[in-house]
């Protein structure tokens, strides 16, 4: 099996690479790439993302043909794709960080700033928070409800169709933290930094 981690200069992805390689060992080939042919021919794709929604979308657009290739991979060919943090957020139609920016439009919804109740809650939402699993998902296999995952973000994905929500987390409000729609998977938290349980999720994705 070949897995591509999309490298589009979206900030620091070395932890993503390290954790996937740790799980993959010799069984799975992990490529860190922005090469369209390589992405097309892979079995699964990981879309990481750090920094602002706008800077990540800009990063994707800067690589000629990348968005089309991802669309073909995920929407036309329905192959498994895992978005992490802003990688997940970009599934949305639109994001409001920095300025209004169009997303990939894969799962209807928007990405807006977390309502921190006039400063009552600190932002970014940083640290270990518990996830409320609301729906069975293959990527949560072996992970119990209320497990801790590592978060760091100030914006949240609000999908229109609540049936895609796999898990939420409680902060200033209920925040969507894992979604699944057919072949699309995404987490707001960082499995690559979430210790053993995060590694377990990566394992689950690899063995889909």
């Amino acid at each position: 099996m070949n897995i591509s981690i999309v490298d589009y200069k979206s900030g620091n992805i070395s932890s993503v690479i390290n954790s996937f390689k740790e799980v993959a060992k010799d069984k799975v080939k992990i490529e860190v790439t922005s090469d369209l042919i390589e992405i097309k021919s892979s079995d699964k794709v990981v879309l990481p993302g750090q920094g602002s929604f706008k800077s990540c979308v800009d990063g994707l657009n800067k690589i000629n043909g990348l968005v089309e290739t991802l669309n073909e991979f995920a929407i036309t060919n329905k192959k498994p794709l895992f978005g992490i943090c802003v990688g997940l957020q970009m599934f949305a139609d639109i994001g409001y960080e920095e300025t209004e920016t169009k997303g990939l439009g894969w799962i209807s919804g928007k990405v807006s700033k977390i309502d921190n109740q006039n400063g009552k809650y600190k932002l970014p939402h940083i640290g270990w928070n518990q996830i409320n699993i609301v729906k069975e998902s293959k990527i949560f296999k072996g992970i119990e409800n209320n497990s801790h995952m590592y978060f760091v973000h100030s914006y949240e994905f609000i999908p229109e169709d609540e049936s895609v929500i796999m898990a939420t987390t409680d902060y200033s409000s209920k925040i969507v933290c894992a979604v699944e729609k057919e072949n699309l998977f995404g987490t707001q938290f960082h499995p690559e930094k979430s210790d053993k349980l995060g590694i377990k999720m990566i394992e689950n994705f690899l063995s889909l």
Binding site: G11, N12, Q50, G51, S52, V152
Partner: peptide, 14 residues
């Protein structure tokens, strides 16, 4: 400016 520049470039989270 190092803080301004680096947080823009890599994100405030780091």
């Amino acid at each position: 400016e190092v803080v301004v520049e680096s947080s823009k470039k890599f994100g405030s989270q780091c």
